[in-house]
Design a protein around this nucleic acid. Structure first.
Lengths: 197, 197
DNA sequence: TCTATAAACTGACCACGGTCATTTTTGGAG
DNA sequence: CTCCAAAAATGACCGTGGTCAGTTTATAGA
């Protein structure tokens, strides 16, 4: 029997295969990091054919998005565990898990940037969702923090995100390695959130 | 005869082949944009073997860096042609050619970010050099512009760069397409350069 | 239980960036 | 001019992401 509007009827097998692919991916990443993930290795470990991988994920990056978003959300949970930070220094400390993961690998950072925005309105991906979360978490904190009040918390949050991305970029840049990531971000955010002119 | 300290003795042929590869690349890009560039097409147009390409450029991205940096430097020349801008709006207008090229293609923007920092101190690439130039141009302008004086022009310039990158990122994001690039950047920079609290 | 159909899976194949042992060309020394 | 070592060029080959026509498997209906 078929209901007129397209039905999916997903088989149990599908979920099982998908779970095997995810588990295999995590195992491969465990061994050599995200950048070392090869689709052929994943399907070999999972015990399925290559084509099956692409029946479950649109492409390799789609899988990476899922895996990275999972980790990132755990980092956000950690960041939100304590009470809301009030000062620039406290904000940086609270966000440390997130920034740490984001800069754990150059390859990870590049992928995060590429998928930080939803290319099409309808399809906001897991990573784009994480960046939305980054924005919302910061905005909530900034509403009650000791920061300038002349502009909206939304704008302040966008700025913090921009400065954080800048500081993370420079972490991968040999030319600017004289200062630490947290030190640099602190300078940025003091100037952005607590201007004195 | 060979002088002891390593000599290069570059043949004329080398320069000619390299010029042919560059010209062929520009022709291919002319037709389909940067993202459509295929090494096999380039060597076919240039009339050389594939291996020759990699004898002249470390990899495809190295060629892209050279080509994009050439364009970018032309944009900077244009930006610096007039007299130094004084206000936020004038700065945005002056930088328009640069931002326009940077966001001309998603593929171009991604490459620019990836190569914006020098991975190794010794080898600052063409794109990393362009980002240095971006910073220096802004810093010079900001020294004599109508902006806050409580922080150094260096820091202000870094901030403008961070906000510009953020605004360009959002240009590729369907979720935030309600506002224009220049409008968004103007809001950012007013808050960054001329705070009122 | 049997059958028809849609869902899931398969693996040979392709596209494209990149490698390297071998061959060809160049230009200075004799 | 001839010779030869270094420089340049070659193209068969490889790794890896991604495709798709064909095969197998699950399940709804009889």
């Amino acid at each position: 029997m078929q209901i007129s509007l397209m039905e999916k009827t997903v088989q149990k097998r599908t979920l099982k295969t998908r779970a095997r692919l995810i588990a295999a991916s995590e195992e491969v990443i465990q061994r050599g990091g995200y950048s070392a993930l090869r689709v052929e290795d994943v399907v070999q470990v999972a015990g399925v054919a290559k084509g099956t991988f692409f029946a479950h994920f649109h492409d390799k990056d789609a899988l990476m998005e899922i895996l990275m978003a999972e980790k990132l959300n755990a980092c956000f949970d950690q960041a939100q565990a304590g009470e809301a930070p009030k000062t620039v220094t406290q904000i940086i400390v609270a966000m440390e898990p997130v920034h740490s993961f984001m800069t754990s690998e150059r390859y990870v950072f590049d992928l995060l940037i590429r998928y930080s925005g939803a290319a099409a309105v309808a399809e906001i991906g897991p990573i784009a969702y994480c960046f939305e979360r980054y924005f919302r978490v910061l905005m909530t904190w900034l509403e009650t923090a000791d920061v300038r009040q002349d502009v909206a918390p939304e704008l302040l949050a966008e700025g913090v995100q921009a400065f954080a991305m800048q500081a993370m970029s420079l972490k991968f840049c040999a030319l600017h390695s004289s200062q630490s990531f947290q030190g640099r971000l602190e300078v940025y955010l003091q100037a952005w959130l607590t201007p004195t002119a």
